[in-house]
Amino acid sequence: MDKPGQGDIGSSGAGTGSGAVELVMTAVLLAVLGGGGALVNPIIGVVGGSIAILFYFSIVINQEYERAVVFRLGSFDRVLGPGLNLKIPFLEWVQVIDYRVKTVNVTPQKVLTADNVTTTVDAIVFYKVREDSEEIRKSVLEVEDYEKVTVNYGQTMLRAIIGERELDEILHNRDEIADNLRDRLDQATNDFGIHIRDVEIQDVSIPESLERAMASEAEAERDRRARVTHARGELQASARIRAAADVLGSGGYKLRTLETVDNVAKENSTIVTIPAEMMPGGGDDEGGSPVQGLVDKVTEDVDLSDLDIGEAADKLAGDSQDQEDTQN
């Protein structure tokens, strides 16, 4: 009889299956009953039926991805490969091991990081039983439930790794943490024939208040980078303008100023600011006013006598004359 344990024991993974059961029952009936349905020979029927039953319990059929560990009277005997295998009925039983890659979730772990931030981390582990016969033997004899042990190892090691790091490192180095966990876990499970193929960190949860603070910090950092980029562009532009001024001299500066004035005038402005040095006289004549020079230049060809301004014009002219006499 088969002994329960890990894997599928005495089931479709190790046995003949429903088709084999039907074959055995047919053989028993043919051995016991004659063509007319009458009992031919009870002894022959019993012997034939017993042989068929023994043959049924002697067959072990493994799939390509399965191996069967055989125990004889409670002691390990051998490992059976894929295909049709035989065992001694009632003295030997098998435990089938599936060595395909399996996945197991490491339950979320609430951990305090090195910088005293509470975070919740969970992971998923990809593992398999090693295919070597000795490793398969260890997966049965060295551990009661290798999947449960693998999960427990993953939980404790994940907590240890997260506790050694600060939050920023955890958020930015998930792959490194996953690789570290995989190496540690593979070394620990190697003693009972388990190989860790991969580990993935699924989620890192932090308090909501900290999420808002980190979002504000990220926004401030983006603004700082934008300002630095803008200042760097201004610096490069000023350096090129300075180089152009050295080549063109003062005329180049005035040309640049005129281009700026022209750009301002295109914006449909009613007021245009003109630098004093660009006005007639340039402010260099002794006692001269650039503004007065510009006014004189504009009004020198205008005959004010043609304008009927009456007493207001006379009064304005008199006030201007009095102001000049006072200054003299």
Results as ranks from 00 to 15, higher is better:
Gly233Lys: 09
Gly252Pro: 04
Val69His: 00
Thr189Tyr: 07
Ile177Asn: 01
Asp98Ser: 11
Asp122Thr: 08
Leu23Val: 04
Asp223Arg: 14
Lys315Tyr: 13
Val28Tyr: 00
Glu92Ile: 00
Glu22Ala: 14
Leu248Cys: 05
Val149Ile: 13
Tyr65Cys: 00
Thr119Pro: 04
Asp322Gln: 15
Tyr65His: 12
Glu176Ile: 06
Val47Trp: 00
Glu144Ile: 13
Leu171Tyr: 04
Gly35Gln: 12
Asn152Ser: 14
Thr118Ala: 07
Gln6Asn: 10
Ile61Ser: 09
Ile241Ser: 09
Glu311Arg: 11
Phe90Gly: 01
Thr119Arg: 05
Ser18Trp: 11
Ser320Pro: 03
Asp115Met: 01
Gly282Met: 03
Asp306His: 12
Arg222Gln: 06
Val149His: 08
Val32His: 03
Ile196Arg: 11
Ser209Ile: 03
Thr119Val: 15
Arg256Asp: 10
Asp203Met: 12
Thr107Arg: 15
Arg182Lys: 15
Phe90Tyr: 11
Gly249Trp: 02
Asp122Ser: 11
Gly252Val: 06
Leu158Pro: 04
Arg225Gln: 08
Gly163Arg: 07
Thr326Ala: 15
Val32Lys: 02
Glu200His: 08
Pro42Phe: 00
Glu311Met: 08
Arg232Val: 09
Leu210Glu: 13
His195Ala: 13
Glu144Pro: 06
Thr103Tyr: 10
Ser133Tyr: 12
Asp296His: 13
Ala239Pro: 01
Leu258Ile: 03
Ala313Arg: 15
Glu267His: 09
Asp191Ile: 15
Lys87Asp: 01
Leu29Gly: 07
Arg232Gln: 12
Val302Asn: 01
Ala231Trp: 13
Gly288Ser: 10
Met279Ile: 00
Asp301Arg: 13
Ala220Val: 07
Val149Pro: 03
Glu324Met: 13
Val149Phe: 09
Lys315His: 09
Glu300Asp: 12
Val94Trp: 03
Thr118Asp: 02
Arg240Asn: 10
Asn190Gly: 02
Pro42Tyr: 01
Ile43His: 07
Glu134Cys: 01
Asp284Thr: 14
Lys128Met: 06
Asp191Asn: 11
Pro4Phe: 11
Leu33Glu: 13
Phe90Leu: 14
Asp246Trp: 11
Asn173Ser: 13
Asn152Leu: 13
Val104Glu: 14
Gly288Val: 10
Arg130Ser: 06
Val94Cys: 06
Asp246Val: 03
Gly233Val: 02
Asp223Tyr: 02
Arg212Gly: 10
Gly251Trp: 04
Ile9Leu: 07
Leu80Gly: 08
Glu135Trp: 09
Thr326His: 09
Ser320Glu: 14
Asp115Phe: 09
Glu267Thr: 12
Val111Phe: 05
Asn263Asp: 11
Asn268Gln: 04
Asp262Trp: 04
Asp314Lys: 10
Arg240Phe: 03
Asn180His: 07
Val151Trp: 07
Asp308Gln: 13
Glu200Leu: 15
Ser305Pro: 02
Asn173Ile: 01
Glu66Ala: 03
Glu324Asp: 07
Gly45Asp: 03
Leu255Gly: 08
Leu235Phe: 05
Glu144Gln: 12
Ile206Glu: 15
Lys128Ala: 07
Val272Phe: 05
Ala123Thr: 11
